[in-house]
Design a protein around this nucleic acid. Structure first.
Lengths: 106, 106
DNA sequence: TCATTTGTTCACAAATTTATGAACAAATGG
DNA sequence: CCATTTGTTCATAAATTTGTGAACAAATGA
């Protein structure tokens, strides 16, 4: 069944945004292209770690990278990535609200 | 920084749709509510496996569950889930197209 | 009441993901 | 050239996720 293969690929793309650091990167890049060290400046942490996460995102087509001189610039591959991310954020906030309401009733 | 905690929660919600079987479930439930055994009938595999994946999705607020007699009905918690999933699918197909074009040029 | 159906929970091994620091490569500036 | 800056790659240990089958629980029907 070729359908199962599609689901596997689809899940791999989704997995590329299923990590706190990667979510943070998407958040940061909503405002536009940034180079590696600027992203690192915001996220903090080890550069090797960030580099590996960025390369996963590029490999899955979430981000695009452009080299210029000694800088590597990263940007969202599409506004769809940001939109999907926003929708999932809304699902999160709705859940948090619901949990809060349940707690208040106790 | 409380921001990091939000990213962690956000990533956990995204992770709930980052598995081939879970993507398939979202696909199936787009058309509406279904009970466990109906979902299993479509996806195949072990019931214990499906059950665990469904409970992850419920826990992360992707799905809602409703018991009725001996049946457990599952549905998407919000149309936003389906929309986010569709957007990610579009990102995937755009990438596949791009890769195909690169291959054709070789 | 007893067997059956429907699904969940549990324990565990295997696979995958993650963070870390060291080594490496490429461009730039002095 | 040589040192520095910018970032990637690699090896590895730790943590997490995954699939599997057995055990379990709750509702239904005979």
């Amino acid at each position: 069944m070729v359908q199962k293969e599609i689901f596997r690929l689809h899940a791999e793309v989704c997995k590329a945004l299923s990590h706190p650091l990667r979510i943070e990167v998407i958040d940061i890049l909503q405002e536009g292209e940034l180079c590696f060290s600027d992203i690192l400046g915001v996220t903090g942490g080890l550069k090797s770690n960030l580099s590996q996460h960025l390369s996963v995102m590029v490999k899955q087509g979430i981000l695009r990278m452009r080299k210029e001189g000694t800088c590597n610039y990263y940007r969202l591959s599409s506004v769809k990535v940001a939109k999907a991310c926003d929708l999932m954020r809304e699902v999160l906030t709705e859940n948090l609200k619901k949990h809060r309401m349940i707690l208040e009733k106790m």
